[in-house]
């Protein structure tokens, strides 16, 4: 038995990825659940409009972090700000009693705001926009599409590519008269199409079964999903280039998937996380897809409101996909790569 235990430890010591999972994962989970897993929102970005603005600012609970105070703004301005996700709450004093517009697409923020307003009694009437019943599924389904695309893009794609390497056929492809671009596109296109099909199915099922509203432009959503797919497929290809076996690819994909699930704002609100943890979340592609998906589905937001997540995702797609193609190309045509390097030297 001693020999068996010793053998197991020796094998584990040499399996660096499993060791990384054993050591890094508990630390990551502890950090995430310790700091990030927080449903309680401490501050809510709030704007106040109308003639009674100053008085509301003076009486508002600390939870509401009052940003802009605009006595001249109208209710239409308030609704536009909410649609464009410029703020989470607008207190409109043009009505009597004042109306608090709350963004129902930010579930936990909306719940905290509702509780705080309820404590104020009749002073404020609350109007929850975009998700009036604060349905969890309405917020989850758009984000879930991103998770499914991430799953297919990273895990399934990397498994498919590593399978080719593991069975020796990648080497076969490398010496067949196929252009590297043909092989790369030929390998990735089916996953792109399958993920797109899955996206359509989940979108239709979400709208049909869970009554999730689709307020925005479907084409804008399709473009966002397409850009996001390039990012996750690129990550899948990159994983495959540093994995020798399917088990290694799955391990690495899970290590990249887990932070995306926990830190993208899809389960725990980014606003409730400490700045450093939220900053990690802001480096993850799913964070931006969640913003785009929830924005288009629930708020009917257009490109003017969503250009930042679109721009960040496009940048990520260019960077990750180019790196993935270059690495994959090097695996496919090492001799050509060597010749090019020699020529450059």
């Amino acid at each position: 038995m001693k020999a068996m235990i010793l053998k197991e430890f020796r094998e584990l010591r040499r399996d660096r990825r499993t060791m990384a999972m054993l050591i890094v994962l508990p630390i990551v989970l502890l950090t995430i659940f310790g700091y990030a897993a927080n449903f309680t929102v401490d501050t809510i970005p709030t704007r106040v409009i109308g003639p009674g603005a100053e008085q509301v600012v003076a009486n508002a609970p600390d939870l509401f972090e009052i940003g802009e105070v605009d006595a001249d703004a109208t209710t239409n301005d308030a609704l536009a700000w909410m649609r464009d996700n410029e703020t989470e709450v607008v207190i409109d004093t043009t009505t009597q009693p004042p109306t608090a517009y709350v963004d129902g697409a930010s579930l936990f923020t909306a719940q905290s705001a509702s509780v705080a307003f309820a404590r104020m009694g009749d002073q404020v009437q609350v109007d929850i926009l975009f998700n009036p019943d604060l349905e969890t599924s309405w917020v989850m389904v758009p984000a879930l599409i991103g998770l499914i695309l991430t799953f297919i893009g990273t895990i399934i794609t990397s498994i498919g590519l590593v399978k080719e390497r593991q069975s020796g056929t990648l080497e076969q492809l490398a010496v067949m008269p196929l252009k590297p671009a043909d092989v790369i596109i030929g390998k990735i296109a089916p996953y792109f199409l399958l993920a797109s099909f899955d996206m359509l199915v989940v979108t239709f099922l979400g709208v049909w079964i869970f009554d999730v509203p689709f307020e925005g432009n479907p084409w804008l959503f399709a473009v966002g999903a397409g850009i996001f797919l390039f990012v996750v497929l690129g990550i899948g290809v990159l994983i495959s280039t540093v994995s020798q076996t399917q088990a290694q690819a799955i391990q690495l994909a899970i290590m990249l998937l887990l932070p995306q699930i926990l830190l993208s704002g899809f389960i725990f609100p980014l606003d409730a996380m400490p700045t450093a943890i939220a900053a990690i979340g802001r480096c993850l592609p799913l964070t931006y897809f969640v913003e785009i998906a929830q924005g288009i589905f629930l708020r009917g937001a257009g490109i003017s409101a969503l250009w930042i997540p679109f721009a960040v995702l496009t940048g990520m797609a260019l960077l990750v996909f180019s790196a993935a193609v270059l690495r994959f190309r090097r695996d496919l045509a090492p001799s050509a790569h060597h010749r090019a390097k020699a020529k450059a030297a």
């Binding site: 069975s167 020796g168 080497e171 010496v175």
Partner: peptide, 17 residues
């Protein structure tokens, strides 16, 4: 010769299983 004139059978058989 050029790639299209090479036939290669790698150790791991090189068939799509």
């Amino acid at each position: 010769p050029a790639l299209e004139r090479i036939g290669f059978m790698p150790t791991a058989a090189g068939v799509w299983r």
